[in-house]
Amino acid sequence: MSASAPQSAQTATDLASATTRTRDLLILAAAVIVALIALYAVFMDNGHIISATGSYLHEFSHDGRHLFGAPCH
């Protein structure tokens, strides 16, 4: 994180350099991973995430699962 500071002539869209594109892709990939974990937790988990204590996530999100059409027991 050093390099030269962006100069005035460059607008945000002009900054499509390799570094910014890589950084943007990393941000997007991280967002996808976090979002998919969250969706798995509320719509797919059957007691695997907090397995020692029972299907807490499943039961807490129970009504939401039914409403959004996610399969439920």
Binding site: A38, F43, G64
Partner: peptide, 13 residues
């Protein structure tokens, strides 16, 4: 839980 689930799902989607 329904409201919380909807908010989490909304943010993730």
């Amino acid at each position: 839980g329904l409201v919380v689930t909807a908010i989490i799902a909304g943010i993730a989607l």
